[in-house]
Design a protein around this nucleic acid. Structure first.
Lengths: 299, 299
DNA sequence: ATTTTGTTTTTTATCTACAATAAACATTTT
DNA sequence: AAAATGTTTATTGTAGATAAAAAACAAAAT
């Protein structure tokens, strides 16, 4: 088993569900581009669709004979990329309560548990190490540094430096830049959520991520972008397992975002800095409060 | 050939050169700790030393019989870790003039050229990707982004944010902190170099790296530390192949460092910021001028 | 002449195997 | 009893092999 054909299966599912009976399908290169795969994979998809009697395929003629059913699709376990499987499995482990900082991470054990080879696990750990949660001792094991208070503080410091920079850059964007339109749409999304806050406060983290990503894109700095990617992934899992979706905190954050958006739109650098700092300050508090509360040692 | 014993050979050389005839060697765990290797490797070293007649080894008795000669040591090609070999080889390629941004990087080709397996090359590229000089398209090739003007500007921006932060933190260190002693020693080193600047200006880059590292350590922030590691490696190779060691520029930088050190020692945050900004500004210019000067396209 | 399809080649992603190294366990020595 | 040595086991680092996926090349159709 050199490699699973998850790219094929995932793209097949994606393409199959969008098919409509009696329509004609476009050319192979076009399908490949639509799906973001190579033509080889696109042809594999067409071959399978044809074999399953979902389309009639003859050279340029590709007619949808019937709507695919759920039964035609590959089960979701088979469509996840190995990287995603390892990531999920690993994050679950290190965010679990019994994962104490300082713990050793064993490649072979991890690989066995996930049911994969060691190479993939190694590569994952190397990639993951940029998040600062694990560290390697050469020729020896990885060590879990953990989602600790120090980690959160160091993360928050860098985040603040970067976001103040990005926000200032955003304020300097020419008025005809696409980002201003996106920002206005974002403002509306915030108002919509606010109007129905009691029902929707749990969706805030998604909106929050989109908002900060928009700001950071203005910096056009690869290091800032990479760092924000890292934050987003770490937070994604962190908040997924530590359901601290406090309605009140999220509502307050939405108001801060709206102030922040208004400041950006004003173009006044001093106002931008003030609003940005205000939001970052409370975001830091939220992060710190989401940490497992360690019992204070008695003297 | 699963793995070369470069750890053993490198540690053997390191230990052999420090041996003095007629001295007795310490216990195995002590030797291992001294060399930073496991006891298994330390024992392998003792075994070899014994076989070569350099020591007489019997349980706890380890007497140096003769001084090892150059002939006893492993040649340097055999002591470099595979990682270092790949790193050097790769940096040489991408900093060479014919490495145009946008170029594809082929794992197999690289591996063949270096004479190694693909796994090691892959892992190296993954690690290296955090420097922002290459980028991967999933299921497809790596792309060289290159040491371009954009890269230099993005790097300089982040560097400035981080160093302003670290410098401010440094200024807040308690007076009995070890860093103040180190800083004073660093000041002296600068004066020594300045006194003999015509001969020694080429050594500046090493001093420069040590100086900034000392400042960054004050931040106690893993993301800042990691970023500075990355910078240091990139610069190490960049300046090695682009010998722009201008005496005048380095002399000026030394003076800026001395001003910067004085500001830190004053503890005056405003003075620190001013001196730090002044130095970072000229460091940015130096970096930009070290780039290959691209001919401006005529309209 | 360009685009599309058909076919072949190259490259990546991943597994397995194994030597080097680290780490654990057992025995001896002080 | 603590530390050192002797011995065994576990883990990492790396090469090599192979299916999937991408890319290149060739032939056909508009």
């Amino acid at each position: 088993m050199a490699r699973q054909n998850t790219v094929f299966k995932e793209a097949y599912n994606r393409y199959a569900v969008a098919l409509r009976t009696d329509t004609a399908l476009p050319s192979e290169p076009e399908i490949a581009a639509q799906l973001g795969v190579s033509r080889s994979t696109a042809r594999a998809i067409l071959t399978r669709l044809s074999e399953e009697g979902i389309i009639r395929w003859n050279k340029r003629q590709k007619i949808v004979l019937r709507q695919p059913t759920d039964h035609d699709l590959f089960p979701s376990e088979e469509t996840d990329s190995l990287h995603d499987i390892i990531e999920r499995s690993f994050m679950q482990r290190i965010l679990a309560d019994d994962a104490a900082p300082g713990m050793q991470i064993n490649e072979l054990e991890l690989a066995r548990e996930i049911g994969t080879g060691t190479t993939s696990v190694r590569e994952f750990l190397i990639r993951f190490s940029r998040f600062g949660l694990i560290e390697k001792r050469p020729n020896s094991h990885w060590t879990l540094k953990g989602f600790t208070r120090e980690f959160a503080l160091e993360l928050a410091d860098v985040r603040e430096m970067f976001e103040l920079h990005s926000a200032a850059e955003f304020g300097r964007l020419p008025r005809d830049n696409q980002s201003w339109t996106d920002l206005a749409a974002m403002r509306d999304d915030h108002h919509v959520m606010l109007a129905d806050i009691n029902q929707r406060f749990k969706d805030f983290s998604v909106l929050d991520e989109r908002f900060h990503l928009l700001i950071h894109r203005a910096s056009k700095n690869r290091f800032i972008a990479d760092f924000y990617d890292a934050i987003a992934i770490v937070f994604h899992y962190h908040y997924q397992w530590n359901k601290t979706a406090a309605r009140q905190r999220n509502e307050r954050a939405i108001h801060e975002h709206l102030d922040y958006i208004a400041a950006l739109e004003s173009g006044d650098q001093a106002a931008i800095e003030t609003a940005c700092r205000a939001h970052l300050h409370s975001a830091r508090q939220t992060l710190l409060q989401s940490l497992p509360q360690v019992a204070t040692e008695s003297a």
